[in-house]
Design a protein around this nucleic acid. Structure first.
Lengths: 347, 347
DNA sequence: CATCTAAATGGAAGCGTTTCCATGTTGCAA
DNA sequence: TTGCAACATGGAAACGCTTCCATTTAGATG
């Protein structure tokens, strides 16, 4: 059917092994032979069959990745970084999405392992015991991303969701916000949003703020943010800061405030988490916590590549950090002007 | 190393072929033997090696997909639908992103073909000659999605961007909008946005509207939409409708109108394309054109599966249609209330 | 000049499946 | 009872590559 190594070998009058050596850049091939073989490859239009190579070499050059949802910007961006990096190093990506279910994740892991990937990328740090067992047993490098943990399956590349959330509440408290409510994701909860929620609550506890009735559960959607505002509006004494576990919720909240005529941040400050593009575009610009997600994906790729190179001893944990970005949606003593997209547009 | 078919065969006292037959659900295996083999598989924890199967069977069970950008909701949603459907049928996805470059796409196609996927998913209908040649030559099913064409590589599943754009302008003209400007994507142009732009312009030509100076190029971003409004504001006579090739541009435009105190739709109507989640959440809700992207992805999967099943004669073109969704961001005689996310939130 | 070493290469043995072919077996009709 | 399907099964030959081992050759060394 298609052209094989044997065809090339025959045409070039060399052994199949030699062609393989040329293909893989082995050192012990004479310059003359190499040129000859390369010419024949060109002439026949030979393309290696990576499936066969995978069988023979026990390396497929594939990395398996599982994210909660392909459509959600956040994880997709990390995958974009990961994919870019891997491509540059001749590795390809096999992607699955588990819809925020650890059981689905376990199923996909099991599936993917049958395809013998060289490495694995997982989102978050909470997985079923089965998942952990299968991956550990497979012996391939694994990186968990977007959070941190003391007990990774293998490596972890992420940032401290809990700490970021805690810090931002302390900061906004210093800015004068006193009556705080927390909007947390009801639907599709996960270790990241849970850590954020806990961080918010921990800070409030630090500050001696009573959070009774102030932990508001909503779906992770614009509508969820709007619903959270509806609940907040009923509380007394009046809430002056709504901290949200995601930007999506926060943006939904701001838009609802526009509809209800609630001044932001005058009456209610709003703050999010993720720094999605919309955060900088909305009025007022949203105070949020940003992470270089694309960079995180690349770093995850780097970690895997090092592990594949035999660096078993490398540090299994990389903290990529986060960045609190204060904008007009919360009070500020030093009156920070809008930045990014909104900057030049203001008059 | 790991458990192979031979191990199972030995334990079960059968031939390797028989184990394979059990694995693949072949008819000619006695119930007794099947149970026996299954028990041994269980006992040994045997997991098939799909790489070896791929070599032997000349079917890898992988589908290759290329999208412009993984992070962009639109394409990611189609991939989600495709991925779901394929998973249900035992197929897995291999994803690459080409950054809106046909040359990159060609490179990725070439790469991916070495991995012998069973089928290919491409975004859009404009590709390099090389891409077309390689795919045709490979002989595997190919589906192009998100647009339509008379000359597909193999199959196409999409909707008529041109026609949708044309229709919406006619509709909004009927609603009373007369001075129309078009905001089109400057950065990352592609066959879909180009078709939309051409559809808008065609409708304007139909209606005898002079578009001189009214075709505004901007980046496909919120900031781009804002910049478009800045340009529109300078035009005279005053523009009363800005039609945008994407929702992202349209939302950026609406937010800029908020900042400038331009009433939407009173002074300027805005309409988008894609029906992203933010379209229903923003104030006023955005008139836009929606497509069931997840469904489109699923349909693409279905088409590929049929082709794999040998249905070479099936219709190579599926139009999944589109849906003009009128909301408050454009004038309406019949005063349509906001729908979707904003509905219950209004007071 | 004889020996040794390193580089270059051909060839064969896998890698773990599927699939084809040949060889039993069994049951049933004649 | 005989013969013949139809079914069940074992075994071997691919699938296209990598890699190891043995061999050859040439250059270097004593």
């Amino acid at each position: 059917m298609s052209v094989t190594i044997a065809d090339v070998a025959k045409l070039a009058n060399v052994g199949a092994g030699t062609v393989s050596r040329v293909l893989n850049g082995s050192k012990s091939v004479s310059e003359e032979t190499r040129a000859q073989v390369l010419a024949c490859i060109q002439q026949l239009g030979y393309r290696p069959n990576l499936v066969a190579r995978g069988l023979a070499a026990k390396r497929t050059g594939m990395v398996a990745a599982i994210i909660p949802s392909i459509g959600y910007t956040q994880h997709a961006e990390a995958i974009q970084g990961l994919s870019d990096f891997l491509h540059e190093h001749g590795l390809r990506l096999m992607i699955g999405h588990c819809g925020y279910s650890a059981e689905n994740e376990a199923r996909i892991v099991s599936d993917f392992l049958e395809r013998r990937p060289d490495a694995f990328y997982l989102t978050g740090t909470s997985h079923t015991a089965d998942t952990r067992r299968m991956l550990r047993q497979s012996g391939i490098p694994v990186v968990e991303a977007a959070n941190l943990t003391d007990d990774p399956i293998d490596c972890v590349v992420g940032y401290d969701n809990f700490d970021a959330a805690r810090q931002v509440v302390h900061l906004l408290h210093a800015r004068g916000h006193r009556n705080i409510a927390v909007a947390t994701s009801l639907h599709d909860p996960n270790d990241r949003t849970a850590a954020r929620r806990d961080g918010y609550l921990a800070a409030c506890a630090d500050l001696g703020i009573d959070m009774t009735e102030r932990l508001i559960a909503c779906t992770n959607s614009f509508a969820g943010g709007a619903a959270a505002v509806a609940q907040v509006a009923r509380l007394s004494p009046a809430i002056d800061l709504l901290v949200c576990v995601t930007d999506v919720i926060a943006v939904g909240a701001i838009l609802e405030c526009q509809r209800r005529g609630i001044a932001v941040p005058g009456q209610l400050g709003v703050c999010g988490f993720d720094d999605l593009p919309i955060a900088a575009a909305i009025n007022p610009a949203l105070t949020t916590i940003g992470v270089d997600r694309v960079g995180m994906g690349r770093t995850a790729g780097q970690v895997l590549l090092q592990r594949l190179g035999g660096a078993a001893a490398m540090s299994g944990s990389v903290d990529v950090g986060f960045d609190i970005r204060e904008h007009a949606s919360t009070r500020s003593e030093i009156s920070a002007p809008g930045e990014g997209a909104t900057k030049e547009l203001r008059e």
